Simulated scan of single mutants.
Amino acid sequence: MASVANILLVEDDPLASAGLDLALTRLGNSVTVCESGESALRRLSERRPEIVVLDVMLPGIDGVEVCRRIRAEDSLPIVLLTARSDDIDVVVGLEAGADDYVVKPVKPRVLDARLRAVLRRVDQAPGNRSTHGDLVIDRGTMKVRRSGRDVALTATELRLLLELSRRPGQVLSRRQLLASVWEHDFLGDSRLVDATVQRVRAKIEDVPSKPVFIETVRGFGYRFVTP
């Protein structure tokens, strides 16, 4: 199998990191392991991986803060490792800019599949350009501009915006968005959708609490609207 990705794995549990390192390497990836947030940030300043797998509970700088610091400077894909699916750290981590999360203990093939899905979102580049008021979405160059200025979106944020804007006025359920953007089945988590919508709104809306482009359809999902 060809190499899938250069992965930075940030995990302080030596047994967990050794197991994931070995398994992900056998699946064709190149893995670098860091045991703390501080060492991970130093490593990132020296060499940029293709994707970061980041444990939430780290000594010193925790995973959420590492995620926040990465996202302040880079759209690098980030997948969180968390001990509980209902942990508040999941929500905080998603709001900090993570693209996805998995619950430990995780089977290496499941994690590998999630990483592949996130990286596919980086690579996908459908054609065409659409204009919605002062918001321009260029599907060929994978760029978004608002009032003539570039909008910095992560691959996941961009994929979500592309999916919603593909059919203006049509309501898409959270389950539909999980399937099309995250490639999740019924095991997906709607918090991924809600947190990413909030992040996109913060970047394209004048008043995120009163959105013009992405409307919430209560009890169902979201709809993209051209002003």
Rank of each mutant, 00 (worst) to 15 (best):
A5D: 08
A5R: 04
I7A: 04
L8K: 03
E11M: 02
D12I: 03
P14R: 06
P14I: 03
L15Y: 11
L15V: 13
S17K: 05
A18L: 12
G19A: 11
L22V: 07
L22H: 12
L27W: 08
G28I: 03
V33N: 08
C34G: 03
G37R: 05
A40V: 03
S45Y: 00
E50K: 00
L54D: 08
D55V: 01
L58M: 05
P59E: 07
G60R: 10
D62Q: 03
V64A: 10
C67P: 00
R71L: 09
A72N: 04
A72Q: 11
D74G: 01
L76H: 00
L81G: 12
L81A: 13
R84H: 13
D86M: 05
D87H: 06
D89S: 14
V92Q: 14
V92A: 15
G93P: 00
A96T: 09
D99K: 00
D100T: 02
Y101S: 09
Y101I: 08
V103H: 07
K104C: 07
P105A: 09
V106S: 07
P108Q: 06
D112V: 02
R114M: 11
R120S: 10
V122Y: 00
A125C: 05
G127N: 10
R129A: 13
H132N: 03
V136T: 14
G140C: 04
G140Y: 09
T141M: 11
K143Y: 04
K143S: 15
R145D: 09
G148L: 00
V151L: 09
A155Y: 00
L158G: 07
L164K: 00
S165C: 11
R166S: 15
R167P: 00
G169D: 12
Q170F: 10
Q176S: 15
Q176L: 13
V181A: 08
E183I: 02
H184T: 07
L187Q: 14
G188M: 09
L192V: 09
T196N: 13
Q198F: 07
D206F: 08
P208N: 03
P208C: 04
K210Q: 14
I214G: 04
E215T: 06
T216N: 10
F220W: 10
F220Y: 12
F224C: 02
V225R: 14
P227S: 08
